[in-house]
Write a protein that binds this DNA or RNA. Structure first.
Lengths: 219, 219
DNA sequence: CGTTGCGTTGATCTCTATCAAAAAAGGTGG
DNA sequence: CCACCTTTTTTGATAGAGATCAACGCAACG
């Protein structure tokens, strides 16, 4: 069964919120299921809420005057939808449509802003969550533009490891994709590290044997 | 003569401030002129202020241990610099350097935070700015992990173009860096597009001749 | 059991970084 | 305005990294 509060506590924007703040927020949220191809909102509608994707895929797009679709992005699990709009615009700047059956958490814009208005402390937490995430993304961009796959994998292993052990939280297929490569290459790169005795793989966990040498692959 | 208060009143971030608040803010601001190639701050320095560009261009970039440059973005008139840093760590996450002579307004982080505490509307603007930048970063990450150089360049040209004309705001060297490649490859990819009659280059400006075909290179 | 999706391995080919060098563009000082 | 130097941009040749295509083992699952 889907638990809104528990879900929200894992959304990056709300990670720093206290139990009480979370409780208050949850009060103005509602889960919203949406079927494939259904429109969530369209461009020009008055903004009354923003959304967080619990699962599924939502396409954000605009239509050009001659009817061409201009895809802006696709939001998926954990991503926010239209949260920028609630702060400045009063109308949605684009259309949102489900690419597959999806579950969203809908947050009322007015209520959310009201909570924020009366609680500067909360504002700060949210802003610092944004700042943190921005920094994370900047790092990721640097990683992608400067490192090759060995470097990116080494980077991943070293940042994910706890006491030299990495427990993969996703499939290798997804890991490959998040490293900007394909499963075959990931498999080979892991093999390369294994052959050089830098890592070991034991029932799904990766053990880092020589972290310094891994570091040397990172730019 | 440059008037800080009058300038600030036109910055989107401060539109919601009252005359009195503006006065107060101005008190903690100072204009700062910076010459071409001068460093504004470097990665790791303690954050005590953030900046707004009054005119000029500031390059934000990181360096890898072996000296490779990763250009994160270029900020120009009206853009904020290091505003995320004031909520996060106490150290700048990147370097900032002037591409040309520029004028900045320097705002003390501590004082700004004080004003924020009593002004939720200002908080909202900040959040909106963060949300937009975050989206930009997310797009960049997607671009870097999914597209090859042709795709990334096509993407860049199409997003930067105004009525099919792209005016480069940076050197091709910097553009290469921001696309996650090197000048040689950028030069060749431009040549490839030219040879296929998709673009044309006339005194520093790039003219897009076939935008649909450029789009086909993007994943 | 057959089916389906994931992970690994192999062979091949393409793209892009690297190295080298020339051409073009930008400053600088006389 | 010119000669000179530096930096950027372009072009060429080459090597290496990684994608693609194909095939197979394996586990999960109906």
């Amino acid at each position: 069964m889907f638990n809104t509060k528990s879900f929200l506590s894992h959304v990056f924007l709300f990670e720093a919120l206290s139990e009480k703040e979370l409780e208050e927020l949850t009060f103005f949220c509602s889960p919203k299921k949406i079927l494939k191809d259904e429109l969530l909102f369209s461009k020009g509608q008055i903004v009354d809420s923003f959304y967080i994707v619990a699962y599924g895929k939502i396409k954000i797009f605009r239509l050009s005057p001659n009817g061409d679709e201009n895809l802006i992005h696709i939001q998926r699990e954990g991503d926010l939808i239209a949260e920028a709009a609630i702060f400045d615009d009063e109308r949605y700047p684009a259309n949102a449509q489900a690419l597959e059956e999806s579950l969203l958490v809908k947050i009322s814009a007015d209520h959310f802003k009201n909570i924020l208005k009366t609680n500067p402390h909360l504002c700060f937490k949210i802003m610092s969550a944004y700042a943190k995430r921005l920094r994370l993304f900047a790092k990721k961009i640097q990683d992608l533009s400067l490192n090759d796959i060995k470097g990116r994998l080494a980077n991943f292993l070293l940042t994910e490891s706890e006491k030299n052990i990495v427990t993969l939280s996703m499939s290798k297929k997804d890991l490959a994709s998040s490293l900007g490569t394909i499963p075959e290459t990931l498999s080979r790169t892991l093999l390369f590290f294994k052959k050089n005795n830098l890592i070991e793989e034991v029932d799904g966990k990766i053990i880092i044997k020589k972290s310094q040498e891994l570091k040397d692959f990172i730019n």
